[in-house]
Amino acid sequence: MKIDKNTINKIARLSRIKLDGKESEDYIKDLNSILDWVEQLNEVNTENVEPLSNISSSILPKREDVSNDTNSSEEILENAPDKLEGFFAVPKVVE
């Protein structure tokens, strides 16, 4: 079994998703069966094969260094669940 309780907790924590006990168990089951299934890729010989990240064969387009975005702070904050004095607001962080 690749995914145990510790692993699922670790990746849930990395993903910032709180899981309750029942959910963790379900995901342990799901993820293990998916990982077992994808295991078949090991049959493929990929020696000297270049990984493919993007199918596009063009070259990275670059923009000129012009600042022309004109979004107002009102527009940027419009959908924020909590905003105060022109800022996004979140629970207090102690560094």
Binding site: D82, L84, E85, G86, F87, F88, A89, V90, P91, K92, V93, V94, E95
Partner: peptide
């Protein structure tokens, strides 16, 4: 972190 007693502000 010091603009509001209970919140952190993000700019």
């Amino acid at each position: 972190h010091d603009q509001n007693p209970s919140k952190t502000y993000v700019d």
